[in-house]
Design a protein around this nucleic acid. Structure first.
Lengths: 339, 339
DNA sequence: GACCAGAATGTTAACGTTAACATCATTAAT
DNA sequence: ATTAATGATGTTAACGTTAACATTCTGGTC
């Protein structure tokens, strides 16, 4: 119940001024050794804890950064957060973690709250349904440092830290092509999102460079979760025999998992009947009965890089709006066919 | 670059007092409709965002709660955090997430920082090496609401939200016994931690109730990670043939994964040569070549319950120190032998 | 038109801290 | 002893907000 001890209380207890106590607590010089000792003892015995709220109010600096993620459950975001936390910790920043649950409104509200709490900067990974650009323009005009990570709004004018989505998508599509597949489908993500757009672009580029046809019905929106993957795959499986793709590139692993479930339900075999590849290298990918060929995203690195980028903006060392890509790595397993 | 607009600036721009603006922003009554409208418009056009730091300083209430976790990577903690976040969100609290990385000193530092940032309460899951009780006693005397979750310090005098560790450990050990195993080993966790102690207790209780011998060398400390599990299992496998256990109960799934690796390296077969069970139902458990029998921990529920408990203390609705157990569920798969 | 209730608005001080400046004490140099 | 320089400490105001109290305005009543 000792409530909260203040500098002034310590000062009074010792018959000195609050300023002197402040100097001791902050290790400033020009304080007599005896006084310093006395103050430190008293502070300890009274259980003093400095009030950063007051400090922040004066200094206009909170040493807090806000993080907005669309989901927490899957392995990717926790790893990113670990990366962010590591960098923040090194620089004495704390993280306010908020979760939009893939809801654009909740995301907006989260950002507003973070601003009110006077975070020194915000890191955002957008929900699947984020589309209101004007809001981000307003945010930008506030001058608050912001970086996007993984799921970016390209036109918002903030730096974005992600992976080489397009290149990787192209490469893994090419891998399927190299296996001899010609009829290849893509389970795509929302096109408002950088990852949705870029992975589709990579897919298309690989296909056209190989003069392969992309039937309209082979590009199906699945979203980023299992359920969507399942439903999208079902649509593909419902196509007439000769229109059905022989291989599928899913926007990410969860969507691939859903698709795999659909394929299994139809009694088809991977990769013999249909080959499939994913993206993200979910922790489960290699443990599947037919291990999933996918693209490994160095999530921890993305988190670190994004945090470093934000901190450099906060510290005024960096003004430019950049697009930073951490390099991925293909994980060739068995779901794509023999190799 | 609009920096941060204040109430006073809005007031000046309109030629009225800051107080009136404050009243409008906070939806207090006794404000003329015209004034209200004028103020809201101006606030919008100037890009006003309330400063919660200042608010918190006055009200001594930050609507922020601190969370300290020992790790972020594995599936358990992200789920717990999701549960915490959900409850916090409903009640308009934000989360400051800190990560001790299984380091007792870093944990202490994190708690101090959270106190400085004047969080309204703290939720802690201890590192494996936390042992300094006196620190927690000091913390308790500060009067700040605290609850432990999952990994608790029983003697610290704070409420603890976890699972029915002892009962579940006993049950899963009994399951091995029911399979006819008599020589059963336990890979244990740090005994400073509630989960380490309770799971060991459950194991011992099941064994003694069945009049089974527990050889000293069958209880090996593995810690909570794969590496420790691997090394501990190696020790067991190095025992002379007749002393070697036929079944193993690992403190948690990661430790079990490490142990499985050790067993595999020795060319032994699960469950034929050695049966193994874990605890926590890691996302990978059911995907292993021999799916792991384990105890499912409702992590999301633990997070929710812990957050609810903390908030009830913060709101002064609850004074008592409780030990809350969320019920687990056994997941019988194949690693424990036929069933 | 005097008076009053209630609504609308304003003023002051406080939350805990520290930058900037002011004062007082001590020591060293002349 | 006088002065200057430096070290130790104190005072004031400010950060943005709001509770508590103070003042002014409005319309209605007699």
């Amino acid at each position: 119940m000792s409530s909260n001890v203040t500098l002034k209380q310590i000062a009074e207890a010792l018959g000195i001024s609050a300023m002197t106590v402040s100097r001791v607590i902050n290790n400033k010089k020009n304080v007599d050794e005896k006084t310093r000792k006395k103050v430190l003892e008293k502070a300890k015995s009274m259980g003093y804890t400095p009030n950063y709220l007051a400090k922040s109010l004066v200094s206009n600096k909170s040493f807090t950064i806000g993080v907005v993620v669309p989901e927490i459950s899957h392995s990717f975001f926790p790893e990113v957060i670990r990366g962010i936390e590591e960098v923040a910790y090194q620089e004495n920043y704390q993280l306010i973690l908020t979760h939009s649950a893939e809801d654009a409104e909740r995301e907006k509200a989260a950002i507003e709250t973070l601003r009110s709490k006077r975070v020194d900067g915000i890191m955002i990974s957008c929900s699947q349904f984020t589309s209101d650009l004007s809001y981000f323009e307003e945010l930008r005009s506030s001058g608050l440092p912001v970086v996007f990570f993984d799921r970016c709004m390209d036109e918002a004018g903030f730096s974005c830290v992600g992976v080489d989505d397009k290149a990787a998508a192209k490469k893994i599509t090419q891998h399927l092509i190299d296996h001899g597949y010609k009829k290849i489908a893509h389970l795509k993500g929302a096109q408002g999102l950088s990852i949705g757009r870029r992975r589709l672009e990579g897919f298309i580029e690989a296909m056209s460079e190989n003069q392969l046809e992309i039937a309209d019905e082979w590009i199906v929106e699945s979203g980023l979760q299992e359920k969507g993957g399942f439903e999208a795959m079902m649509k593909l499986l419902d196509l007439p025999e000769d229109k059905r793709p022989r291989a599928v590139f899913a926007i990410n692993d969860p969507a691939a998992f859903g698709a795999i479930e659909a394929i299994r339900e139809r009694g088809l075999v991977i990769p013999d009947d249909i080959a499939i590849v994913g993206f993200s290298d979910d922790i489960r990918a290699e443990l599947l009965p037919v291990p999933l060929t996918t693209v490994h995203q160095p999530a921890y690195e993305v988190g670190k890089k994004a945090a470093e980028t934000l901190l450099s903006i906060i510290n005024g060392e960096n003004e430019s709006v950049e697009n930073i890509e951490v390099l991925t790595q293909m994980k060739i397993r068995s779901s794509c066919g023999v190799h």
